[in-house]
Design a protein around this nucleic acid. Structure first.
Lengths: 232, 232
DNA sequence: ATAGTTAACTAACGAACGTTAGTTTTTGGT
DNA sequence: ACCAAAAACTAACGTTCGTTAGTTAACTAT
């Protein structure tokens, strides 16, 4: 058994030019996840095979099972990471009275909307957003998360925000829930437009950049109607 | 070769209870298409096999190739049917001056919006809408059609409509394109919500019923701001 | 009755899929 | 230097997939 096959190890095959990244080479498990995020977000879960992912990483498909229980486990890890990442942020970090005083209602919406979106300004997270959008119809877990955390919860938050704006006398008395929907449904469509309809075709780099102009116009339109007083 | 296998023909197997629909039994080709619409709209194109479709119709998978060139051909036929069906309608059947005179701008929006949606109030078309929504990210042909015919074209039509409302003095002078987006982006989100997020879970029977209440609130909100005079 | 067409059938192909078993190499602590 | 653990490898399994070839039954027009 002297002249068996010679093995060629990872990243040592022809064409590999990976060298000296000495401080912290990414572990294989994370490489697998990143490759999966890339591929899933481009083609969708079903259309990507374990072999595709392995090829992207530069290993054999069986090696993946040293790190993940299977294909579904990779997907679960990605969505788990995504949910954890989003849970980090504290929505009410700064009391809105201060911001309202400083920026007025329109300015506040701009700032708050931008801050909300800045949280996802991150190439990896944008890919997962795209993946999430694609898999919404197929994956019950994702859909439930999206509907509660990405729709219902923000709607309630915005409803309270508008409620407060009324209490503080910034805007006219109005149906707060309706205002929340007016504002947020528009945002949600921009989300679908960017991640589902136009993904990869936008001239802008990120969701935030692509959307903010459009959103500012929307905010202004909404508030011209209900505003009472602006900031100093 | 006397005791060869006995063939059991379509719909004659155990459990079949199809009988006397004498006038016009649906042809196999259409049955295949309907079954495909059902299955594709539930699980998506990739997740449905030719065998699944054949089983739903009650024939062997190979028989499908007597009617369609292959799986992709079934999908193309469905989307072709869908596009043809939508092309039938003439958007400007009734001159809007008449309707505006009769209903005023808010009433006009209600009527026009409802009429626009009534066109798709049809179980078969609703399933295809769902299918289209699912396949948007995957199918370039569908996406191009959707973006041009279902987004850009209506946006232009609404822009002209608002332009005309201004010319006729029904609403204040404003950015017509922005008004079109304000109105139609909301509609589009309702579309995604119904066909993509909540499909099959709605308490309402159809898209129109499910959406119209919500939409009326939106129209009223928009117009309280820009309206000048209402109908008599 | 017969011939031609349509549309069902059986059977199988090659490819790709997710996954597993068993083996070999690499790596890191002692 | 050695050994155990980690992680790569080869090879294969059993399915399912879309599709095709060839066969047989059922209509339809003559």
């Amino acid at each position: 058994m002297g002249d068996k096959l010679t093995f060629v190890r990872k990243n040592e095959g022809a064409g590999s030019s990976m060298k000296n990244n000495p401080p912290a080479e990414k572990g294989t498990k994370e490489q697998i996840m990143d490759a999966a995020i890339d591929l899933f977000s481009q083609k969708g879960y079903d259309a990507v095979s374990i072999r595709d992912i392995a090829r992207a990483v530069g290993i054999r498909e069986s090696s993946i099972y040293n790190h993940y229980k299977g294909k579904e486990d990779i997907m679960d890890t990605i969505t788990g990471f995504f949910i954890d990442e989003l849970s980090k942020y504290d929505l009410n970090a700064i009391p809105m009275e201060v911001l309202l005083e400083k920026y007025g209602p329109v300015g506040f919406m701009d700032v708050a909307g931008r801050a909300y979106m800045e949280r996802i300004k991150n190439p990896r997270m944008e890919k997962i957003w795209r993946l999430i959008s694609i898999e919404l119809y197929r994956n019950e877990k994702i859909r439930a998360f999206f509907k509660s955390t990405m729709i219902e919860l923000p709607l309630q938050a915005w409803e309270q925000t508008f409620r407060k704006m009324m209490d503080l006398g910034y805007i006219r008395e109005y149906d707060a829930r309706l205002l929340a929907r007016e504002f947020f449904n528009y945002c949600l469509f921009l989300f679908f437009e960017y991640f589902f309809l136009n993904y990869g075709e936008s001239e802008y780099e990120t969701f935030v950049d692509s959307v903010m102009d459009n959103l500012s116009g929307h905010i202004r339109f909404m508030f011209e109607k209900v505003a009472i007083r602006e900031a100093a």
